[in-house]
Every structure is written in structure tokens, then in C-alpha cells.
Write a protein that binds this DNA or RNA. Structure first.
Lengths: 227, 227
DNA sequence: TCTTGACTGTTACCGCTGGTAACGTTACTG
DNA sequence: CAGTAACGTTACCAGCGGTAACAGTCAAGA
């Protein structure tokens, strides 16, 4: 309920933030690249979005997100185009984080099974720690649009890449990479969805169950090589 | 404000009498049940919804759905409460269909692996045949609401039941039933989602890949019994 | 110094959606 | 006949995503 008083307050707050920004800029008239300035602003907007989603849940409106960042809607739209653009940007953030964890596991050259366990666990840890953010980033909206909307698709896409490499390495039918990648991510996603709602078991146990379900299938390929 | 207890009681008594009268009448005359009439209307509305979704895609508005059925919005709302009610009703329809197919496979006592293949194939056949309906019914909306919204959850729930029975039969840890059910359905769901967008391979091949991925895990349990 | 133009920001609006309140209309029952 | 439910309508609401048009600020070139 945006009463008149609230609106005035919000306006005043925005003004204060604007003034502060200007002051900072003048202080160090470093004149850094326009582009990097824009990039930084973008990150600030994303930070604000993260905060407000965490607080108010995934159904939060664009206007509220903008207000949290101390600006109004059109600014947000100039940066992200539309709502799904914002979602995609946020999704990219967390996808990068997640894939970073996966990559570091890969480079540590861990036991393959541990690698699987670690990846599933990292995904579920995010779900557990940031349920609101997770829900926001997972909601896929548009029907007609083909391309990568939504966190889940992005993750699956990247998993498909590393899985494809691995399969090609061992000489196995690499056509399996995509269906398996999407299948695996979908499995963890829905199971996690259920789990976070029901809280039926500790995370480690869920990870163990899911790993058991698919491990033999993956391991057989690993050992069989070109089969 | 007519809130006298007497009045309420009297009203309630009248209502009870009325109900009883209606019941007697229903028995005497053949005059079809009011309820079944309502039920029939509900089915008609669902039929209309199916048709328009098939034609116009999953983002279709409530107003258009109502128009297709030859009525206006409030009627639809009286039957289904809100949009997610409609989705749930539709989801139930197709869930029943799908589970019917599964059950008949179960009763034919097919080879366990064929049973898995058949179920996955039935799911993907629906996705392939009715992509718009599928998308409509899959979209989960509400964040806060706990309960069974969405096709996927319903299917997973039912799969959990039959899987739980099976696990208990063979004396295996039946706690795995739910995570596995949601995991399996999630796997098929997201892989199907990707597949229907990309059309990268014939359905049978996708079914084969997915089956391979999880079969060993399930089979091991089947053979191990209490392990 | 003034003008120009690019940027960031705002206000005020639009179309549409999900959802509801309030009011007619039909058809059956006492 | 009167009453009552169910069926149906019109007309509205708040809130959403999204956009057009305008305003202040700053740096650079004549």
C-alpha cells in the first residue's frame, strides 16, 4: 500500500542516494571508462535485487526491486530489458558460482563419484541457503522464446559441456551428453524442490540417495569406454 | 447486522431440511443429480480450456478460456477458485491418464526394465503430442502455497507411492521412495523440456538414454534386496 | 562562455491480467 | 403463487510489466 507519505519518503530517499553518488564521483574525478561505470551500476542493481528478493520472496515486483536500489523502474529496464533479462543476469551470477565450484573439484582430480557428490551437494546447498533467490531464478516464464531463460537451463547447458568432453575423452557416445546433463540437473532440481518444501531429511542423505540412483549408470560408461 | 444466534440456528435448520428434501427427491425421481450436473459442466469447461490452450498456447488468459467455453470469467472462477485451481484440475486429468498407463503396465507384470521404459515413454509421448497443454500444466506459480500445484508434483507424488510399495516389498529402505520419485520425474521433465525445444533426437532414443542413466541404480536395489 | 550531446534519472501514463462485487435470469420446489 | 438456489452477466478494481516523454547534470568543442 503506497500511501502518499510512503511515496514522499521513497522519493526523498532516492534523492539522498543520488546526491551521495554524485559526491562520490566528484571526489575522485577518475573518469573511469563510461562502460565500466555502467557495469558497476549494473552490479549494484543486481545486489539490490538479491537483497530484496531474499527479504520479500520471489514474487517481488520490478517496482519494489527498483525502489530497493534507490531508483525507479525505467532504470532497471534500461539495464536488463525486461524481467526475464533480470532473471537471466541473476541466474548467470549463481551459475558461475556453481560452475566454479564444479571446476575446482574437477581440477582437484577427485574420485569421480566424489565429484558427482560434490556437485549435487553444491547445488542443494544453494537451494537450502537461498530458497527465495533460488525460486526467483528458477521461474521460467516465456513460452515462445527458445533461448536460455532460467537458471536450470543454464546449469544444464554447462554441465552438458563438461560431460560431453568427458564422454569424448573416454570414447563413449557423446550424444548422451545433453540428455544426461538435462536429466541430471532436472533430477536434482525437482528433488531439491520437494526437499526444501518438505524438509524430510538432512541434505547429506538426499545427496546420497540421488547419487546412488545415477552413479551406477554413469560408472558403467566410465568403465566400459567405447561400448 | 442480523447475527442473532436464533436466526442462524433457524437458518441452519431450514437448510438441513432442504438438503434432506432434495436427497429424497433425488431418490424418487430420476431427475439427474444437481451435483453431477455441476460436475458435467466442470468437465465441459475443462474441455474448452484444453482446446483453447492447444490452439493459443499456455499463456492464454482466463478471459479467453471462459470465452471459449461460451461464458464469462466469474463462472470459471466459481468452478476452480483461481488460475492455479484450473491448472490443478487439468493436471489431475492428465496425471490420471498417465498413471493409468503405468498401472496397466504394472499389472501386465512386464519386465521391470520395460516397465521403466514404458513409463518414461508415456510421459514423453504426452510432452510430444501436446506441448502447449504440457507447458500450461507444468507452470507452477504460487510461491508460498505448499500443496500440490503443478502436474510434475502430482506425478511425482503418485510415482512415490508405487515406488514405495515396491521398495517395501523387497525389503529395501523405503525412505528412498520420495527422493527417487521426485528425482526420476524431474529428470524426465527437464530432459523432455529440452528435447521438445531442440528436437535433437527421436523420442525412442531419448527414452533409451534416460533409462540407461538410472536403470543400473534401480536394478541394483531390486537385486540386492535389503542392502 | 555558451552550446551540444550523451547519460542518468524522473513522472505519468498504457494495456492487460487475475480476481471480485453486485446485480439479473432461469428453473425448480413448497 | 412465492422463494431459493444455481447460472449467468456487467462493470469494476488493484497491480503488474513495460514505455514515452521530459528534466537535470556533466564533459567537451566552437
Amino acid at each position: 500500500m503506497p500511501t502518499e507519505g510512503n511515496r514522499d519518503a521513497a522519493r526523498e530517499a532516492r534523492r539522498a542516494q543520488r546526491v551521495e553518488r554524485h559526491a562520490r564521483r566528484r571526489q575522485r574525478h577518475d573518469h573511469v571508462d563510461r562502460d565500466s561505470r555502467r557495469l558497476a551500476r549494473r552490479e549494484e542493481l543486481l545486489d539490490a535485487a538479491v537483497e530484496v528478493i531474499r527479504r520479500d520472496g520471489p514474487a517481488v515486483s520490478m517496482e519494489v526491486i527498483a525502489a530497493e536500489a534507490g531508483v525507479t523502474k525505467p532504470i532497471v529496464y534500461r539495464h536488463f530489458g525486461d524481467r526475464s533479462g533480470l532473471v537471466a543476469a541473476l541466474a548467470k551470477r549463481f551459475t558461475d558460482e556453481l560452475m566454479g565450484a564444479l571446476q575446482s573439484s574437477l581440477e582437484r582430480d577427485a574420485e569421480p563419484r566424489d565429484l558427482l557428490v560434490g556437485t549435487i551437494d553444491a547445488y542443494l546447498a544453494f537451494v537450502e541457503k537461498e530458497p527465495n533467490l533460488y525460486r526467483f531464478v528458477v521461474q521460467h516464464v516465456d513460452a515462445g522464446a527458445e533461448e536460455l531463460s532460467g537458471f536450470v537451463r543454464q546449469v544444464a547447458k554447462e554441465v552438458a559441456v563438461v560431460l560431453g568432453e568427458r564422454l569424448r575423452e573416454i570414447g563413449y557416445d557423446s550424444g548422451a551428453a545433453e540428455p544426461w546433463a538435462y536429466g541430471l540437473v532436472g533430477m536434482v532440481h525437482l528433488a531439491g524442490d520437494w526437499w526444501v518444501d518438505s524438509g524430510a531429511m538432512p541434505r547429506a542423505r538426499l545427496v546420497e540417495y540421488l547419487t546412488t540412483l545415477v552413479w551406477d549408470g554413469l560408472d558403467r560408461v566410465e568403465n566400459a569406454g567405447a561400448g
